[in-house]
Design a protein around this nucleic acid. Structure first.
Lengths: 215, 215
DNA sequence: GGGGGCGACGTACACCGTACGTTCCTTGGA
DNA sequence: TCCAAGGAACGTACGGTGTACGTCGCCCCC
């Protein structure tokens, strides 16, 4: 049996798999090459450099988003669906998500979500400029949320997930933090995300820049 | 003249200065040591490892936030002030901001902003659980915003700031993106941030979980 | 005066990204 | 059928990285 030839797609896939298995720090050209049973420099026949490889990883993950957009649905439900779609890939590729949000990619892979979101906001009654503004705001929220959700598990250790040790914070200096330390320590990301989406939807529903009366 | 002795503070300060001058990629133990006119391993007498040094950088930058909180002011104004305070350090230390938002630090340096924010939200009429929820949402927005603002200038090149080349996007596939490419290409971060803050303030002002009637 | 501890240092190792030159295998044309 | 050409895989090498470890000199306190 002959092993199938190297290709950019196989390299990117190996990188994704390695990142999810051992974290982004484990990624090196040598490591990926050995993972594929191949010499290090052979990778450079398909990928110009490491940065481009990581871009490929981000692009690959991003392109797996499943958009089941229904133009007939209410805009609020479409916003909810698109937000869920984003978060689902973060659930599927938690370690890669950091790459997606930290590398800004100039490719066209990230354009489809933008297109869908803009269409949704236009149908919600925003003009072009306000649609862009609102979209930027929403993306900021999503990126910030995913970053917290992912960043809280750098070593994927559920045990020490608590960021705040209630015993170590001085109740005199930080009364609120101290009183709420239990709530601050644990976080239901699912509920937190849904809460944010709902508040966002409700906020733009009443926004003055929106023209009412669209389907 | 005798050079003043090495110290954790001097090392962190040199790192901050180097990051702002040449970017986070330029940071290496050897580089910082030579910057201080010192041997590489001498650094390890004051800093356990590079990760701790970067944590120190994040902590240092974060601790420079100037909170001029006025408990007598309206809660909405207090939210605006605190948001501005956050964004100002991003303006002051643009390259370091990525570190602050990407490393989650277990130290107590980040606790003061949390304390102030929670107090503000409590005074706005939220109970503990909702204050934490709203705070998490707000932090997500701020982090996402700063990340975009900083990430758009990795090499600090104002020329190629445009992420989207209008000529390269197919109007058939992406009509909205194509039509709004000019708006998508440029971004007034200041206005964008203010827009988000206002929408956030207005959203929580009408939120059902908030109890009205506080000063 | 002497001893102990600490801070600066140099060396060494394993690993990183990648520029460059070599080898082999496949494939198109005569 | 043979040969030339090109691409793909490879090995070597260079400069850089983080840091473990052993050594040396200075200062302070007893």
């Amino acid at each position: 049996m002959t092993t199938q030839p190297l290709s950019r797609a196989r390299i990117v896939a190996a990188a994704v798999e390695l990142i999810e298995r051992e974290g982004a720090d484990a990624v090196s050209m040598r490591r990926i090459a050995s993972e594929l049973g191949v010499g290090v420099m052979s990778l450079y026949n398909h990928v110009p450099n490491k940065g481009a490889l990581l871009d490929g990883v981000a692009e690959s993950v991003l392109s797996e988003i499943e958009f089941t957009d229904d133009p007939e649905a209410h805009w609020a439900d479409r916003v909810r669906m698109q937000a869920r779609a984003f978060r689902q890939i973060a659930h599927h590729y938690p370690r890669c998500t950091m790459l997606v949000v930290s590398r800004q990619l100039h490719s066209h892979a990230g354009l489809l979500p933008v297109e869908r979101a803009l269409a949704t906001l236009r149908s919600a009654g925003f003009d072009g400029a306000d649609a862009v503004r609102v979209l930027r705001l929403f993306i900021a929220f999503i990126v910030g949320s995913l970053l917290r959700e992912v960043g809280v598990t750098p070593a994927f250790a559920p045990g020490r997930s608590s960021t705040i040790d209630p015993e170590e914070v001085d109740p005199e200096l930080f009364p609120e933090v101290s009183a709420l330390s239990e709530l601050l320590g644990s976080c239901d990301h699912e509920a937190e995300f849904a809460f944010g989406v709902e508040l966002f939807v409700q906020a733009i529903a009443v926004h003055p820049a929106r023209r009412e009366g669209t389907r």
